[in-house]
């Protein structure tokens, strides 16, 4: 009585296998939780992997203080539901210097996220960190291993990656070194949405269309999420029916105009659209190989 596994069942089994390997071999793992849809799937898979035990590691949110309000709500809810510890790290230097997306451009991401992440990993001494990156997102991610090795300075050396054969992962490392592990490497955006749909996984409501206050700036449709949003002279927020394809810091994340209020409608829109997912993020457009460069410096 054989049973043919669907591609989603195969992907799920692979991700669970990866997470269990990390827990068995690492001393102090952590899951980076960004509250987005990929994080939602990764967290759900972790709960499946160790059930009935709650996932035996904490969640870490590297906060920039500039996320959407709804993301903060979802973060607290999911930590509670999953019965996991939630660690929130905000780079004290960024707080002190008042780093923000309006005045500091690329520096904002660098200091809050890249530096903040390194600080948090060093502070708690985590030697393995799960991240929700997918290989279909971006060209340099397409080449990253599932177990991605980092030097004691958190640097990634793309030319010196360990060969990764079958489903055998080499988790050995020297003291001070760490690994970033990407359990959903082989999932596509469509797989993520479909899995959320089939498993009824809670996601931030911003992924669904609603009327929200917006301004249009530099080709991006930005949401005025709180009163810290600096309006330029003459700018007046306009109510538009929008949703988000990816979630980050609200002043840096572009919305799309949409009427998709349910998951199948969102999926339908995604499949019918003609631009790729990351276009709404300012960070990738900085320079040709921007993501590769950021990753070498320690960005997830």
């Amino acid at each position: 009585m054989t049973k043919s596994l669907t591609h989603l069942e195969r992907l799920e089994a692979e991700s669970i296998h990866i997470m269990r390997e990390v827990v068995a071999e690492a001393e102090k793992p952590v899951m980076l939780y960004s509250v987005g849809k990929d994080s939602a799937v990764m967290l759900h898979l972790a709960r499946k992997a160790f059930y009935p035990t709650p996932p035996p590691f904490p969640l870490l949110h590297v906060d920039t203080t500039w996320k959407f309000q709804e993301m903060y709500k979802m973060r607290e809810r999911m930590a509670k539901e999953s019965d996991m510890d939630l660690l929130v790290h905000r780079n004290p230097e960024a707080i002190e210097r008042g780093i923000n997306p309006f005045d500091h451009g690329g520096l904002h991401t660098d200091i809050w996220k890249t530096e903040g992440l390194k600080q948090a990993l060093d502070k708690y001494g985590f030697d393995a960190a799960f991240g929700g990156a997918r290989r279909d997102e971006e060209k340099s991610r397409a080449k990253e291993r599932v177990f991605s090795f980092r030097s004691a300075n958190h640097r990634w050396d793309p030319k010196n990656q360990r060969p990764e054969l079958w489903n055998l992962y080499n988790a050995k490392k020297a003291k001070g070194e760490s690994i970033r592990v990407f359990p959903i490497s082989n999932w596509t955006e469509l797989d993520i949405w479909q899995y959320i749909h089939l498993n009824d996984i809670p996601i931030v409501p911003l992924y669904f269309s609603a009327r929200r206050p917006t301004v249009e700036r530099d080709g991006l449709l930005l949401m005025v999420d709180d009163d810290r949003f600096r309006l330029k002279p003459g700018e007046v927020p306009v109510e538009r029916s929008i949703r988000f394809r990816t979630l980050g810091c609200y002043p840096l994340t572009g919305a799309v105009e949409s009427n998709a209020k349910t998951l199948p409608e969102v999926i339908q829109e995604m499949l019918l659209t003609t631009t790729s997912e990351r276009q709404g993020r300012a960070i990738d457009h900085d320079q040709a190989a921007s993501m590769e460069k950021k990753k070498q410096e320690g960005y997830f």
């Binding site: 290989r135 060209k139 340099s140 397409a142 080449k143 030319k159 490497s185 082989n186 596509t188 590769e292």
Partner: peptide, 21 residues
């Protein structure tokens, strides 16, 4: 489209495994 790493673009060769979907 697939030669993602900067070093590869410069040299016009593929030096790592790239996964595509």
């Amino acid at each position: 489209l697939v030669d993602g790493l900067a070093a590869e673009r410069e040299q016009g060769i593929t030096i790592d495994v790239a996964y595509r979907f």
